[in-house]
Structures are given as C-alpha cells and as structure tokens.
Design a protein around this nucleic acid. Sequence first.
DNA 1: CCGCTTGCGTTAGTCCCACTAACGATGTAG
DNA 2: CTACATCGTTAGTGGGACTAACGCAAGCGG
Lengths: 164, 164
Amino acid sequence: MDTSDDLRFDRGDGTPGRLRRQLSRLLGMTSAQASRVASEALAPLGAHKAHFVVLAVLAEGGPASQSEIADRARIYRSDLVAVLNELAEGGWIVRAPDPADKRRNTITITDRGRGRLAEIEAVLDDVNDRVMAPLSEAERAQLFSLLGRVNAHLASGGGASPAP
Amino acid sequence: MDTSDDLRFDRGDGTPGRLRRQLSRLLGMTSAQASRVASEALAPLGAHKAHFVVLAVLAEGGPASQSEIADRARIYRSDLVAVLNELAEGGWIVRAPDPADKRRNTITITDRGRGRLAEIEAVLDDVNDRVMAPLSEAERAQLFSLLGRVNAHLASGGGASPAP
DNA sequence: CCGCTTGCGTTAGTCCCACTAACGATGTAG
DNA sequence: CTACATCGTTAGTGGGACTAACGCAAGCGG
C-alpha cells in the first residue's frame, strides 16, 4: 500500500523530519481534524460535543450536581453552565435545586434527553468509524490503548518539567 | 481506596463507556496535555512551537517564500506573518524582498537561527520523551504510525460527511 | 498598451477550546 | 459567631485553526 493519495500533509514532500518526530504536532493536527469532522456532523442536529458528554454522564451515572458532572465529564464548571442551559432549553435535562443543600442543583436527564443522547451517539459512532476507517479493529484498539496510556500518564502529572 | 488524587481523568471510575469509545475526545485531551507540556517547556526560552516549525522548515528546505513556508509548515499565511516578525526580531531569520518577484519575500535562516533551532529542538525532544515515557520504543513507533495513518486519511478528505 | 485574473504578504477578525479569577450565596468547623 | 470551604455563575484570557478582504505586483489575452 503506497501513499499515492494527494495528501497535503506529512508526506515525504516538504515536511522536515524534525517535525515528524514531534508527537504533539501530530496529535494536534489529528485532533483538530477529528474534532472538525465531529463538529460538522453534529451541526445539522444543532448539537455540540459537550452535550453528548454531559448527557452520557447523566445517563450512565444518574442524577448529579453540577460539580459532580464537571468531574465526571472532565469539563470545567464554568463551561458547564452554558451547556446545561442549552440542554435545559431543549428539555433534555432538568435542573432542580437540591433541597438538602441549597447551593447545589440536581441535574437529571429526561426521557427526551435519552432520545437525544441516542441520536447524538449514532452520529458520533459513525464519525468515529469514518475517522478510523483506515485502521483494522485490532489497530483501533491499539491506538486507544496507546493514547490512553499516554493520556493517563500526562493526567497524573507525568509530563511535568523537572525541578529547575 | 478513594480517588483523592486530582486526576480528573479517564480512570474507569466515573467516565461513561460511551465517552471512552470516542476517539476525538481522547485525542483532544491528550493533545491538549501534550501541547501544554510543550508550551511550558518552551516558555523559559521565550519560544513558541511555531518558531520551531518554521525554523525547521527553513533549515531543512532552504530559503523560501512565505507561502512556501506556509505550505511546508502547514501554517496559515496569515498566522505566519507574526511568527516571522518575532523570528526576525530575534535575528534568527532574514526577510528580504525577492528581486525576481517583487511580491515575494525570501526568508533565510541565519546562523543564530540554526543555533536557536538546535536549542528548541533539544527542549522539544526532551518533552517528547517525557510525554511518551510509559511507551516502549516499539510502541512509540506504533503510535506514530497509527496516528499518521488516521491523520493522512483525514487530511485527504477521508472523514467528510456523506452526501445529504 | 489595457484590462483581467491570479498569487503574494498583510491586517483584521471569527470561532472554538482549555483554563483562571472572582463573587454572592450557602454550607461546615472551630 | 467567626473563619473557611464549596457551589453555581459571570467574565475574561490565551492559543490555535480558519476566513475575508485589501493593496500590490505579475502574467496573460486581446
């Protein structure tokens, strides 16, 4: 299998070898492309990726406070506010004050929300499939595993700069 | 055993399975972390990643016009302007009008520029190493290969949405 | 020569994302 | 009661990808 496609990317043509060694560059480019594909696929639905994330968290973890959602969904509480507003406006979640602790809101996914989640999930699964089209099943698993390990390592402070 | 660590990441605990299936999410998180590590490492030098990219292109490809650089470095011409200004201010490149075509500038890397490139490269190589610390050599190659293939696929329009 | 189109560098500005700071209201500990 | 921590919220930063439009120069067809 040769690289006969007219990719304008990292092929032998003009890309210096130094650049190809940089993981962060490759990650960045790939991430940007994948993200773009996903966003474009969700656009017709009027949905954002954050919607999916939050709905998934609520569907699988049950009702939760906003900071709980933020923790689980790996979203900042500050950004979560707008997302929840949009989701509430669509009737996909309910934001109700927690009687036990008046600081908290208890967020619950609605039935419509579950439908919405399924809808979004279908789109994103398809996107995932298109993005990873050139990879076999085993390779996809490999990619997830490798990325996951790097990610976990970085998340646990593994990449911090050494003491000065 | 509580999750008192402040890894707010994907560790099986609260992250729904649906989210873990999404490559773009994993890519995004990992890319953001890696990018952050790189930026922090470059900060003490007063350097940006774009500096590295442009210097590398010039060092390996020889003098070039700005749009040529933009093509090779996979940067937008509009963004390139500021980068070249900074590089010129540091004396790492020279921007001279092309006598053959007065619309063009010919950009050339200086000796100081080559020194700067080496300096930045050393930092970034170290970053790369720290980021991929948990992976063996073979696994790193695997990761590059897999990412590269996905990236190439996306770059050649592989992930476009089907006709509506 | 004249107009037309194309490519070049530049300016400005948009959108999205990760991230921080601060604040009022509420809860908790001493 | 006082001091402090937490919750939701608002606002704003910084960077990266990307677009639009402009002035200028080159090239081409007539």
